[in-house]
Simulated scan of single mutants.
Amino acid sequence: MSWFIDSIRAFLDRGDRLLLAFCLAASGFGLVLIYSATRWMEPSAGLRCMLVQSVAIILGVLVYILMSSVDIELFTEKSWKLLFLFSLGINLLLFTPLGTGAEETGNNSWLDIPGFPVNLQPAELAKLTFVLLLAWQMNRLKEKGISRPDSVFQIAGHTLFMFALIAVTSGDFGMGLTYLLIFAVMAWAGGVKKRWFLIGIVLCAAAVILIWPHISDKYFAKRFTVVIDHITGNPNTVYEQTQEAGWQQTRSILAIGSGGLTGMGYLQGIQTQSKSESSLPARHTDEIFAVCGEEFGLVGCCLLLFLLALIILRCIWVARRACSSQSAFIAMGYAGMLMAQVGVNVGMCLYIFPVVGLTLPFISYGGSSIVTMFAAMGIVSSIKMRSLPSWLRDRSQL
């Protein structure tokens, strides 16, 4: 128990308490929204959601403090093989009877462990190790040149391997997209030249063109086409835009639009409080931003995004003051993770991005998501605790 007390003392002395305060503020706002978004359920179900989320936040704070005490560079250096095996193994568990998912989407993204109070999402947990391993790999490659073809192929191959692993084991292409966006942010921060990003975009576009005829009739492909039709105003697909593949996003923008500037009032949202399952779907998970828009209006949405922006900017601030390139890559990786999920989730709710099942960090309901986010921010706090003092940092830049 002394090690835990020592961890708390070290955190109180040098940990990033401001970042923790930002995370708690966002999580508290999330709890307020989850309470409203679950009132339409049976009382026991709504109470369970609040209890799970509250316990996850408390556990997340403890994990944040513990991760702050870990020398993450030393840990990654000594344990990179175990970290890779963890990422591989926990995703492969989805092939076992423990794997479960949603029949309507075809995803198999969760582990239902007997006796465990909540399901776990392997790809969510593996994001932590992915950032650590990619940062470790980039740090080793930067000495010979991060933009050399062999260096780019190695880090891109690592990312594509994880994307393929998630696609094969769970079919969760939305989570796989997050990994790609994390890679893009880390590669950009690491100094990979712009021409490689252009080449990557061209290759991705070519791949989509080649495989599209074979997947265009799939449900997840229709989620992309319905957004394009909505943005371009295609009159031939209005029914599909509003009643089929675009149903969820149609209800979302109606909720956000009806909130106006200041919202309908807390616990007063028409769709949020409706007991009909045909109203706003996934309102406590994927579409919680729409709940905020309906009940708190534009003002509430801006406040929510402001809180999340503070967390992202704090990660970038820590990255700029990190004691090494590897630590800077890690902090930027977790900033990229947050930026990707916030951008995609809000885009989903505003009907400018396909529904891919990504939750809003610190806000949406989800035990594994909350704990993962606090753990990631704890690692950022660890980097801040071990950053160079200003006078030494200035000398190092001469």
Rank of each mutant, 00 (worst) to 15 (best):
C302K: 05
L308M: 12
D286W: 03
E244T: 15
Q268C: 10
G257W: 13
Q241F: 03
S276D: 14
Q271N: 11
Y334P: 00
C301R: 00
A335V: 03
A290L: 07
Q268F: 13
A319Y: 09
W317R: 13
V318L: 09
M339L: 10
I330R: 00
G333F: 04
L304D: 05
T250A: 15
F289K: 00
L280D: 02
A331E: 05
A290F: 01
P281D: 11
L304H: 08
W317S: 11
W247F: 15
A319Q: 08
I312C: 02
L261M: 06
I253A: 15
L304G: 09
Q268W: 07
Q341I: 09
Q341K: 13
L267Y: 14
Q243E: 15
Q326F: 11
G257M: 12
F296A: 04
R283G: 03
Q271V: 10
G257S: 13
A255S: 13
N236F: 12
L304K: 06
I316G: 06
L305P: 01
S325W: 11
L267A: 14
R283E: 04
I256K: 07
I253V: 15
G257I: 11
T262R: 08
T250G: 12
A245N: 13
I330P: 03
P281K: 12
G259W: 00
M264T: 12
S325T: 09
D286E: 10
E277W: 12
I256V: 15
K275T: 12
M339N: 02
T237F: 09
I253K: 15
A331N: 04
I311S: 06
R321E: 00
I312V: 11
L261A: 06
G260H: 12
E295Q: 13
I316H: 05
I316V: 08
A331M: 09
F306T: 10
T242E: 15
S274G: 05
L298A: 09
I312H: 02
A290M: 02
V238D: 09
S278Y: 15
A245G: 11
A328L: 02
F329D: 03
L298P: 00
C292K: 02
F296K: 01
H284S: 06
T272A: 07
I311F: 04
A309W: 10
A319I: 08
I312W: 00
L310E: 08
A328S: 14
G263K: 01
G300V: 05
A245P: 05
G269C: 08
T285H: 04
E277P: 08
F306W: 12
S252V: 01
I312G: 03
E240F: 12
C315G: 06
S252C: 01
I288R: 01
A245E: 10
V299T: 14
I288E: 01
F306N: 07
S252Q: 07
L254E: 11
I311W: 04
I311M: 13
I311H: 06
W247G: 15
M264V: 10
E295S: 07
K275V: 10
Y239Q: 12
L310D: 04
G333R: 00
I270S: 11
C323L: 10
E294C: 08
Q249G: 14
V291E: 02
G263Y: 02
A319E: 08
N236W: 14
Q326A: 13
A290Y: 03
C302L: 14
S278L: 11
A331T: 02
A319L: 10
C292Q: 02
A290C: 02
H284R: 01
A245S: 13
I312T: 05
G269M: 06
Y239A: 15
E277T: 12
